[in-house]
Simulated assay, not measured.
Amino acid sequence: MTDRTPGDTTTGHLFASAPPPAPDDWEEPLIEGRFRGKTVVVTGATSGIGRATAVRVAREGGHVLAIDLSTLRMEALLEKNQDLDITGVVGDISNQDDVNKIAVRVRGRVDALAVVAGVADNMVALHEVEDELWESVFRINVDGPFRISRALIPIMLSRGVGSIVNVSSQAGLRGSIAGSAYTASKHAVIGLTRSAAYIYSPRGIRVNAVIPRPTKSALESNYGSLGGAGPLPSGPLTSPETEAAQIASPMTYLLSDDAANVTGAILPADDGWGLA
């Protein structure tokens, strides 16, 4: 029999529950050998979600081709993870020449592609968006995923198998998260994901997207700027590394053979943040 305060009707309908674990108590559940023998390309691989995904795949036995624009961050990634099978390539996935070089570096085999690289827009309202901002956001957030996917899909098709995971945003689902350019670009990423999932599913290639919540290690954006909706709700008290690793967990699931029958999914990894 459950102890209950007499006359308390506010919580009487609830089952007793233990308090949830503290956010930083979460431990990354590595699956040994899950990516053994596989080559996985990760863009935006030197920071945040991209770095966490690249390291997780490598720790689970995969060969990672890590792509990023920053030479200094790439050097830091490789220096800190010398025991892992990570090859760094400094390049811009929105630049076709760089993408062509990446396609050569995979040496005829790519099992999975994680497209994480992106840029925010400082919550700029539509009438304030300048051409330079619009073109920059779309070049990185849409042209980049388009170009790198276009280059690597034929390699996947030649083997009849592959997985692509794009990173979109809550801004890809609703209009209150970011400015016009970023919101439109992340809606485009979801459209690209769904179209590719439909077209390539019969040919062995799975295409999914992950929707993270804003994290400390994610894109910087002045969400309180003119025309914006004000500051975002405060997040759980976790470290940037923990937050990124928590999002890398569903990323690596979708990249792996564990998700063999999952395609076209738009998977929130947001601790329920998008339910509000």
Rank of each mutant, 00 (worst) to 15 (best):
D257S: 13
A244G: 00
S239L: 13
N261T: 15
P236Y: 02
S249N: 11
Q246C: 03
T242C: 01
V262D: 10
D257N: 14
T252K: 00
T263Q: 08
L237V: 12
S256N: 08
V262L: 09
I266M: 05
G235K: 01
T242N: 13
D257E: 15
D257W: 10
T238L: 05
L255Q: 07
E243S: 15
L254C: 11
E241A: 14
A259V: 10
Q246M: 14
T238F: 00
G264L: 10
A259C: 12
M251C: 07
P236V: 14
S234F: 05
L237D: 14
E241L: 09
E243G: 13
A245C: 02
T242R: 09
L255E: 13
Y253A: 05
E241K: 11
L237F: 06
A248D: 02
A260I: 14
T263G: 04
S256Y: 08
Y253L: 12
S239A: 03
M251S: 05
N261Q: 12
L255V: 10
A260L: 05
L237S: 14
G235M: 03
A260P: 01
T242K: 07
A265L: 14
A244E: 02
A248P: 00
T252F: 00
E243D: 14
A245E: 10
P250H: 09
D258W: 03
T238M: 04
A260Y: 13
D257P: 10
P240L: 03
S234D: 05
A244R: 03
Y253Q: 06
L254Y: 11
S239R: 07
T242W: 00
A259K: 14
N261H: 15
D258T: 12
E243A: 15
P250R: 09
L254E: 14
T252P: 00
E241Q: 11
T263I: 10
